[in-house]
Write a protein that binds this DNA or RNA. Structure first.
Length: 376
RNA sequence: GGGGAGAUACCGAAGCGGUCAAACGGGGCAGACUGUAAAUCUGUUGGCUCAGCCUUCGUAGGUUCGAAUCCUGCUCUCCCCA
């Protein structure tokens, strides 16, 4: 994997760049749709390519390990072959599941013992075997195994958690550097900065992560319940330390506004379930603001779904029809809304890239931020 | 023609003398959702000058301190027999 920085904004820390992988090129800033179990819920890979124009998607170590399991993935020849997506894939390590499935897991020095949410069986995840699993899945970008503590974590817990993540990181890197890709294309490893909402911990963690000089670096443990100002502050602290010539990935974020604010603070890569999950639940993101498709006010609105839209359904279907699909619980509704939202997120980061290159990013960003969160 | 059962809020359906503006489900309306145990979850759903008051349980009367609940007439539905 190679990253080249093309432009840096003069008024902000925003950057435009390009990542090259064996599965293709990724222009940054980039938003990566989440496909936890090997599928971006409800969306064909052809639509991901043509409508969403996604250049990379996510998979999840924990979920794919449990089902379909490594044997199937190995036999398939990796996830790309298995699901028909031949552009880059990044896999999350299962670190987020340490957080989201916290009732079903036990942390030890060695790793995390999980109880499967599917059948209750016990599984041990370690920094080492999580690398092995992601090798087997065939991810282009492999994430370190980390602990993602909640947003209201106290200092003592945050400190211990960060140190555990650091130990795990060292072991994960060692494992990665002593193993080979399985399917003939290159893989890369991203370490993750932790430190909850504490400046000094974030600083320490960023320095530790940067010291490994990996091809890209991630910021984890944000947008997990802390105030947004804290998140922005932590991003600034961390990005002042993470090397500028490597891509920076803010994990799990976020709203359109979050993404623009993070881009202006020097983040290059994003992923979030919001466009798909909220889309499935009837929420549409548009340049003018947010639409709740189930609301009665759209009942007789036969105007296009989104006049500024960027997928072919935006002008093909009306708001009234989309509302009808959601009210009638037709599966077409969630599918179209998911595609629309991902296409919108794709447009947002692509336009940000364009504005960075033309030197108009700050003004554009401020204008967008003022309207994106409006409720229509 | 004879016998029986029933009519409850938008719909279905509990309640069977006071704690009932009325359980529960559906529908309606609104909200939440940030490295996906989520096509899920939550709230709300008679009116108002809203910690109180007013109008509601087919309809008209009656009994009672008090009725959706008991009695009588009427209207309408459904079932069985002829």
């Amino acid at each position: 994997m190679q990253f080249s920085l093309e432009h840096t904004c003069q008024d902000t820390s925003a950057r435009a760049g390009e990542i090259m992988t064996d599965h293709g090129r990724i222009s940054t800033p980039i938003f990566m749709p989440v496909g936890t179990v090997g599928s971006v819920k409800g969306i064909h890979v052809t639509d991901l390519e043509k409508e969403v124009k996604a250049s990379i998607i996510l998979g999840n170590t924990y979920h794919l390990y449990l089902r379909p399991g490594l044997e199937v993935l190995r036999q398939a020849g990796g996830l790309h072959r298995f699901n028909g997506w031949n552009r880059p894939i990044l896999t999350d390590s299962g670190g987020f599941q340490v957080f989201s499935l916290s009732e079903n897991r036990k942390l030890t020095h060695e790793g995390a013992e999980f109880r499967s949410h599917l059948d209750g069986s016990k599984h041990l995840f370690t920094p080492e075997n999580v690398v092995d699993i992601q090798r087997t899945i065939g991810a282009d970008i492999i994430m370190a195994f980390d602990e993602c503590p909640p947003g209201d974590t106290d200092y003592k817990y945050a400190l211990n958690s960060m140190e555990l993540t650091h130990q795990w990181l060292k072991r994960g890197i060692e494992q990665f550097d002593h193993t080979e890709p399985h399917y003939g294309y290159g893989q890369t490893f991203f370490p993750i900065v932790q430190g909850a909402g504490f400046r000094d911990l974030r600083k320490r963690s960023a320095e530790y992560v940067a010291s490994f000089g990996r091809e890209g670096n991630a910021i984890g443990g944000l947008a997990v319940g802390e105030p947004e100002e804290v998140m922005y502050e932590m991003i600034e602290v961390v990005n002042a330390i993470l090397p500028a010539d490597k891509p920076r990935y803010l994990m799990g974020v976020g709203t359109p506004v979050n993404i623009l604010e993070a881009i202006s603070r020097g983040v290059d890569m994003f992923d979030c379930v919001m466009p798909t999950r909220n889309g499935r639940n009837g929420m549409l993101f548009t340049r003018q603001g947010i639409i709740n498709l189930r609301n009665e006010k759209w009942k007789h609105d036969f105007s296009p779904l989104d006049v500024d839209g960027h997928c072919s359904f935006d002008t093909l279907y009306s708001r009234a029809y989309m509302r009808h699909l959601f009210i009638a619980k037709e599966m077409l509704g969630p599918q179209i809304a998911s595609i629309h939202n991902l296409a919108f997120y794709r447009w947002l980061v692509t336009e940000a890239r364009h504005q960075i290159k033309t030197g108009t990013f700050l003004q554009w960003k401020n204008q967008m931020v003022s309207q994106l969160a409006r409720r229509l």
